[in-house]
Structure formats: C-alpha cells, structure tokens
Amino acid sequence: MLEIRNLTKIYDDGTVALKNVSFTVEQGEFLIIIGLSGSGKSTLLRCINRLIDPTEGQIIWDGVDITAAESAELRTVRRQIGMIFQHFNLVKRSSVMTNVLAGRLGYADPWQSLWHRFSPQDRELAIKALGRVGISDQANKRADELSGGQQQRVGIARALMQEPRMILADEPVASLDPVLAHTILGDLDQLNKEGMTILCSLHYLDLVQRYASRVIGLKDGEIVYRGSRADIRAMTDEQFKQVYGAEAIRVAAGLEGSLG
C-alpha cells in the first residue's frame, strides 16, 4: 500500500538525513524502524505524510505518487495516515476531547471547525476512540493533567479519529517508562491485529523483537538491515552492531537478556 523509492533528504544546512532509501509496506504489517538517534527515522516517517518534503525520490501511496501532492490532495492523503509522536504533541491547554476531535479536522468542514463545531457523529466517534484506548472518563480534563501514558493514549485516539489506514508512530514510547511502553505498544499491537498497518520507529530491542512483523534498520540515513519477524528474533550481535554501532552493543545485549 505504501512504496518508498530512492528517498533522499538533504536539509538546508547540508545535513544528509536520508540516502536513497527504498522499501514497501504491505497492508496489515507492523513494520518497525530501528536506528540510533539522528539515523533518519523521524525524517523518514515525516516524509511519508509530507510533514517534511523529500529532496529526491518518490512516495507512492496506493499506487499514486504523492511526492509533489499539494493542498487538498495532500490533506486527503494525510487524513488516511494517523501519526503519534514521542512527545505526544497534544495541545496541553485544550481538553482531551478537543485534542481527540482535532484528529477529525481533515474530514470536518474547514470553516465550521474553526469555531470548534463538530457533527454529533464526530463527537460520538471521539467518545468511541477514547473508549478504545480506555480513557473515556478523562474526556473533559485538560490534556496536561493526564499522565504520560494517558497522554499517549489521547494521541492514539486522535490518530484513530482519522479512521486511518496506516499509523505512523515516531518513537511512541521513548518518553515513557518500560511498563507503560509495553501497554502502549500493546494498544498498537491490538490495532494491528484488527487490521491496521503500523509503521513505528523504536529504540528498545526487546520491544522490537516482541511486536515487529518486519524490521528495517537505519544508520546514517541508509538502510543497513532488513529482517522478518523470524530474523529479528534471531538477530545476532553483529547485525545489531551494524545498526547501533559499537557502543550500543552492550545496552542491546542487556536488553536482550531481559527479554521475557
């Protein structure tokens, strides 16, 4: 459903974030991208929904090249792709409900929505989305009153409001403790089992091994590793070293040891 062809991103200051990256994502996959900070994971995810414009290459969504899509076309593509973030990116002073409803903006009437007017169906959908991530009782609180885990669930609910066909998750658990990390990824896993395609960047190897159906490893903007579910479970230290570099090996080994 998504195909990335020879994607290259060079920032204005000359930083090369992505170098000739190509891969495809099939319907129903839980594709995890691993790599160090600065390896280009975030840039890659943001190129897919065009929050960042790639320098070269193509993004093909459902067989349509959206690399140069503009305005209405771009918004139509974006609303099919939900996104959740490391720092949740909620509007802290707004209510949970408003944050979730904001996920519907791509469908809502552009002028009506400016006055926070949403259709009753949209509101119903928002309550359902909150129920799905188990925080429907928090709907009227301010977003910053919630704990980190709850905030990320609001983020997921907001993404669900888009009724997306794919969810991009940019380090969704990096600011959460390990227990919460498991529950959040559990939520994503549940969605995946219900048929949602998920593209997620992660740091922790144990989580990768547990949830990924396929893995891509990025290093300095290049794909240095591709592996199936079986491959990642059998991932060797050498392969890991390729992705994470020499210093990271021990952390990774430690994590591997903690695998349940």
Partner: peptide, 19 residues
C-alpha cells in the same frame, strides 16, 4: 509539536492555527 500533529491529520493551515 502540536502544529506538526494537527498538520498530520490533514488539517488546513487555518485549522492548524486555530487548533
């Protein structure tokens, strides 16, 4: 962050400013 998040939902520029 929130700007990015709202943009990612397919919101227009004006909606992004409002939300």
């Amino acid at each position: 962050g929130p700007i990015e998040a709202i943009q990612a939902t397919g919101a227009t520029r004006l909606q992004t400013i409002v939300y």
